[in-house]
Design a protein around this nucleic acid. Structure first.
Lengths: 241, 241
DNA sequence: TGCTGGTATCTTGTCAAACAAGTTGAAAGA
DNA sequence: TCTTTCAACTTGTTTGACAAGATACCAGCA
């Protein structure tokens, strides 16, 4: 029998999902038996079961010994761009339908304070590059961002030649330090008074503040970011279960 | 050989996690081979693989054919109470360290407007129970909540005898309509002016607004809720990857 | 000595066949 | 008609086998 060249378990997982959709299975409906599905997808039962277990973990299907597998409520709740999907602020702004420009409000190398040091897992007073930026569209401010990046990540003083207007994610990618995940914290606040006054953002209104620490694939913490999203312009979706 | 009486795949999954922790495995370290682990946990290789695939989906481990399985960055980012975990507002407030009281600001049966009808999947003008509540601790307001529940869920006019001061989740549980998941939307805003004025909440400040539609296990939409969390008192964590 | 290539052996990926255990429904018996 | 029994499904688990990629080692050769 031919192998699973098509792309492993992940392909099988989405094949089953596709089957559920195409066959019009809805909540409570019974899936074909493991035997039947393993024949339909040309895989063995153990292999199929690995894929089914993934769907089970997402509460999309449910198994009942002796009876079969059934579509559960999790299948109904899917979200296009959940906040739990890691993406750069630039991509996020784009996905909200804005064509935004980026202004550099300032950047400098400074010693890390206690908060930044703790977030990045470095020592207090270790040097970090601090970048302050504002994204805006049609003259309206959208996101006020603060980013801290450990200077230790840069080679031989290359931080001087950086293009801070672009995506920091892309910049780090070229340095082989692409951030792939983060732990984040979300809250509501006003812009810090000093910031609002300095950059004429008194009309910004309530902001959705996302503080996140980004990790590269080797576990290095590469960015600590505070992004103030203008409340009247942004909202994020997610699934709770 | 004895069966997996201890609790199925989920038990096996956490056993592996526990092993990673106890053996002090960190990022990039190699896990024992499948053969070795299946012997250690007294399960067969296919069964073990089902559990390992779950960890793989969470980016906690990574498999490389011919080399082995390795701990990846996802293992480093775990969060105690992620916002993606479904829980009642009461539990959430408690977990933030508040001993809160609930005040009923009002409740009434009204026809659903377009927004509520769309969220609950019912027709406009279908009757819904609207409950308006405020949670507060030490005289300080914490969460202003609006809940809409389809009247169709109640039997023979029992909505009059309800105890709205308790958790709506618990109430629905007794009606065999326990909400188990939701799709949610988060944004930052101020309290609606009218609400602030009517209930003396002018000092509430910026609020974290979570709008969510809750589902019971049979897929019925049982609650549409708008919860305004006081910005200065709440923040939520989650993992992005 | 130093390099090359093959081989044995480790790993994960997949498959086939079998049995255990829970569920269901129909046939057999009272 | 009602009850019991049993055969046939289902998922859960095990065993054994082979394929394919990675690695270490060792013999052979220049």
């Amino acid at each position: 029998m031919e192998k699973l060249k098509t792309g492993g378990i992940e392909w099988l997982r989405s094949s089953v999902l596709e089957m559920i959709r195409d066959d019009g299975l809805t909540l409570g409906d019974k899936l074909p038996s493991e035997k039947e599905m393993s024949e339909r997808f040309h895989v063995s039962r153990p292999t199929l079961r690995e894929a089914l277990k993934l769907l089970e973990q997402d509460s999309i299907i449910e198994a009942q010994q002796g009876k079969g597998r059934f579509v559960t409520a999790g299948a109904m709740l899917t979200i296009a761009r959940p906040i739990t999907k890691f993406e750069s602020v630039s991509d996020m702004v784009r996905s909200h339908g804005y064509v935004a420009e980026t202004s550099i409000l300032g950047f400098s190398t400074i010693p890390a304070d206690a908060e930044v040091a703790a977030a990045l897992g470095i020592a207090v007073d270790d040097p970090v590059m601090r970048v302050e930026r504002l994204r805006h569209a049609n003259g309206e401010p959208l996101v006020y961002s603060l980013d801290w990046i450990p200077v230790a990540l840069f080679h031989d003083g290359q931080q001087g030649r950086m293009d801070w207007a672009g995506s920091i994610v892309e910049m780090l990618t070229e340095m082989d330090r692409r951030p792939i995940a983060s732990t984040a914290n979300i809250s509501a606040t006003m812009l810090p008074e000093l910031v609002a006054k300095l950059h004429k953002l008194e009309q910004f209104g309530p902001a959705l503040l996302i503080e996140e620490t980004c990790f590269s694939d080797d576990g290095t913490r590469v960015i600590f970011a505070k992004d103030y999203h203008r409340g009247s312009a942004f909202s994020f979706s997610f699934v709770r279960k």
